[in-house]
């Protein structure tokens, strides 16, 4: 064996880090890419599913519309239960090999990975979004109805903005889960961070050192993401105080005086 090799744990870490830096960077980039894009796609799927699931069925609707809505909602339930109730690694196998064997669609492992993460996240997001929507108090929806606003208008302008704000922490959780769980995509040979670690560890058989590095990289990614999300929340919350509109400052005192004399 090469006598220049390190002998201690703290010797191996910089050695391996230096030797495999490009591989780790590439792995981390792929992990980050699949997690972020997968979470965004999942969010879009979840929004659509959540919106469809909360469309009210009204007595006066025509039977065709009612039936269509009913069937769509049932299919969505099946989708959600299936993807929440099975491991993502199994889903990855089924999508990757299933598409290949049954439909002769030869997806690259990257594309298959992205697809699996997206639909898996979509199933979780669908429930998150639905919960976010029904947590907005009925009173605001009724007020919008009383103004004559349509259901979709009310959703777009009033319910979804508030629901979205409320579910940001859960979207963050999903993103963090995805950063960690993309590691299962190594099973279909997606060259993400975990697989990079696996390859790196076999050359010198330094498993502990390599996975220690990998662990730090995962932690750096997840911590960064939660910081960024916290910042986004603060931005969306806006200023905590308001300014009185200046042109009316004098009027307001007059108004109030008038108002309180009954």
């Amino acid at each position: 064996m090469n006598s220049n090799l390190p002998t201690t744990f703290w010797g191996w870490i910089p050695f391996l880090f230096h030797e495999y830096l490009p591989m780790f960077v590439k792995g981390a980039a792929i992990t980050f890419y699949i997690s972020v894009i997968g979470t965004l796609m999942g969010l879009i799927i979840g929004l659509l599913a959540g919106i469809i699931q909360t469309i009210p069925v009204e007595i006066k609707d025509n039977p065709f519309k009612k039936a269509l809505l009913c069937i769509t909602k049932s299919l969505l339930k099946v989708y959600i239960e299936f993807f929440r109730g099975t491991p993502m690694m199994v889903q990855a196998m089924i999508v990757y090999y299933g598409l290949m064997q049954v439909f002769q669609i030869d997806l690259s492992s990257m594309a298959a990975g992205l697809l699996v993460v997206s639909i898996n996240t979509g199933a979780y997001m669908a429930e998150t979004v639905r919960g976010g929507i029904i947590s907005i108090d009925e009173g605001q929806t009724e007020a919008a109805k009383a103004l004559g606003m349509t259901h979709f208008r009310t959703m777009y302008s009033i319910v979804l903005p508030q629901a979205f704000r409320n579910i940001i922490p859960q979207i963050g959780n999903n993103l963090i889960t995805n950063i960690k769980d993309t590691s299962v995509l190594s099973a279909i040979a997606v060259p993400e961070l975990f697989l990079a670690g696996k390859s790196a560890s076999t050359t010198y058989f330094r498993y502990f050192e390599v996975y220690f590095i990998i662990c730090i990289v995962y932690l750096t990614m997840t911590l960064t993401v939660s910081r960024l999300l916290r910042m986004l929340e603060n931005i969306l919350d806006g200023p905590s105080s308001y300014e009185l509109a200046e042109e009316f400052q004098e009027e307001i005192t007059a108004d109030l005086k008038e108002t309180f004399i009954i």
Binding site: Q140, A143, L147, I158
Partner: peptide, 22 residues
């Protein structure tokens, strides 16, 4: 229906303002 509702305003006990708007 919505045209009719727009002509009949409603004020609720619990205000029901839109919380995301000024």
């Amino acid at each position: 229906l919505n045209e009719y509702r727009s002509k009949v305003g409603m004020v609720f006990q619990s205000f029901n303002l839109f919380n995301n708007m000024t």
